[in-house]
């Protein structure tokens, strides 16, 4: 796999406490590391996780600090539409956004009704994995590779549901 600054990438993730943004961030970080690149990421912990705004940053490549400055993210992943909209300035011009929403308002480059899909799968908590599947699809991440990682990072009890959701997400954006 080719290295260097051209493959450097900054991914900003936002959602609400309890939506599982940290597992999503962790899976992407593990994927990046498995491709042989340096990884540094940042997470929200503590009180905000009680239903408040939760953000995570993932920087792949030659970076020293864990935070992404506004306007510099290459990719924005939103598990909550309102949070994604208010954090849209994090994205650079021509950046890619992948957002969970039932209604396409035209604000994002890619939308998916992850909550709807999660409900139909009988796993309302799997919105994060559906959006991860979409993200993998959009970013050209190898399907088998991301499945392997989700298997590894998921808690034992959630493994099956997470894989199912990931696959549903992967297929959700196929035209």
């Amino acid at each position: 796999m080719s290295q260097g600054a051209c493959s450097d990438r900054q991914i900003f993730m936002v959602g609400l406490g309890g939506q599982g943004i940290l597992l999503l961030a962790r899976a992407l970080a593990e994927w990046a590391a498995a491709t042989g690149r340096e990884v540094i990421s940042s997470e929200t912990h503590g009180m905000a996780m009680r239903g408040g705004t939760v953000t995570a940053s993932l920087k792949i490549g030659r970076y020293a600090g864990p935070l992404i400055p506004p306007g510099a993210a290459d990719v924005l992943i939103g598990l909550d539409e309102h949070e994604a909209l208010s954090h849209l300035p994090m994205l650079r011009k021509d950046g890619v956004s992948i957002v969970n929403t039932a209604v396409d308002t035209g604000n994002f480059s890619h939308v998916v009704d992850a909550a709807g899909i999660a409900r139909s799968l009988g796993a309302p908590g799997a919105v994060n994995m559906i959006v991860l599947g979409c993200t993998a699809q959009v970013l050209g991440i190898d399907r088998a590779e991301i499945e392997k990682i989700v298997k590894r990072v998921s808690p034992a009890k959630a493994k099956k549901a997470n894989l199912k959701a990931l696959q549903a997400g992967f297929d959700a954006l196929v035209p």
Binding site: L16, G17, G18, M47, A48, M49, R50, G51, G52, T53, P69, P70, G71, E83, S86, H87, P89, M90
Partner: peptide, 15 residues
């Protein structure tokens, strides 16, 4: 040209 995010952070709440 500086970009800022003035997102109103949602307040945390008891579960």
């Amino acid at each position: 040209k500086r970009t800022t995010v003035s997102a109103q952070q949602r307040r945390p709440s008891l579960c």
